[in-house]
């Protein structure tokens, strides 16, 4: 009870979220929240419904019911293109770099929806590789560069709530470290981040809390400070 006053307000609240791909029922009542300035992860095995959760929040999966509130407003009943302007930005698992656009066009594509986003110069400071590749085609980037660009382009928008889907997947350790540094920088600047990860060792270096997802539901919650003590439980959940 006492912690409600101490806690910052939830910028993302998800309650009993159900979602379907065609006939198959993927999410069976996801419930969790993310408070301002927190980094929260969704951990779970392949096919648990983590990516579908993010896609449902963003309106990419349309067949969904339940509650999704962004900064206190319902995001479930508005058209997909009205969700990001509520203050949320999305970096998809497949990175979603447009091949028919140059790197510069990819970077400048997402519209600025609130003041206070990073300037292009700040972004180049964080991601020096992108500055060198501005005129390349989006399809000519390496996996790591694509991931950097996918994160960079949503930092321009002024959105303070970021959904990142497996930003380290398939990348070399040195690039994973670089992305870890970027996430810590973002956290120190007060961004709120919902991170989907399979790599919980990576997640533990940046996150405040972890939700464990299985069969389209949250089955457990672990504070990052307890992750050492709870590692046995986590190993069991994640099958590692």
């Amino acid at each position: 009870m006492s912690d409600t006053s101490a806690k910052k307000p939830a910028v993302l609240k998800v309650e009993n979220l159900q979602a379907w791909y065609g006939e198959s029922h993927i999410l069976h009542g996801m419930t969790f929240d993310v408070n301002e300035g927190e980094v929260v992860t969704l951990l779970g095995r392949n096919g648990a419904g983590k990516t579908t959760t993010l896609r449902s929040i963003m309106g990419i999966v349309e067949a969904r019911t339940g509650v999704v509130e962004i900064n206190g407003k319902s995001a479930l009943s508005v058209p997909a293109h009205m969700i990001s302007p509520m203050g949320i930005a999305y970096c998809p698992e497949e990175r979603g770099i447009y091949k028919s656009l140059t790197v510069r066009e990819n970077l400048m594509l997402p519209p600025v929806i609130a003041p206070g986003g990073m300037t292009v110069d700040e972004i180049f400071e964080l991601f020096p590789n992108i500055a060198e590749r501005l005129n390349s085609g989006g399809g000519n980037l390496s996996g790591g560069e694509q991931q950097m660009l996918a994160i960079a382009r949503i930092l321009r928008t002024g959105c303070r709530l970021l959904l990142l889907d497996e930003p380290t997947e398939g990348l070399a350790p040195v690039i994973v470290q670089a992305i870890g540094r970027v996430l810590k920088t973002l956290k120190s600047r007060g961004y709120t981040i919902l991170l989907v990860e399979q790599n919980f060792r990576f997640a533990a270096t940046v996150a405040d809390r972890h939700y464990v997802v299985e069969h389209g539901q949250v089955i457990d919650q672990i504070a990052n400070s307890d992750i050492g003590r709870e590692s046995g439980r986590l190993h069991e959940y994640l099958g590692i």
Binding site: I60, A80, Y90, P92, P110
Partner: peptide, 18 residues
């Protein structure tokens, strides 16, 4: 460039608020 983006990946382009 916005048109090309919407042609290539309409769902993601909508998710950017376009």
């Amino acid at each position: 460039s916005t048109l090309r983006a919407a042609t290539e990946n309409p769902a993601l382009t909508k998710a950017f608020g376009i």
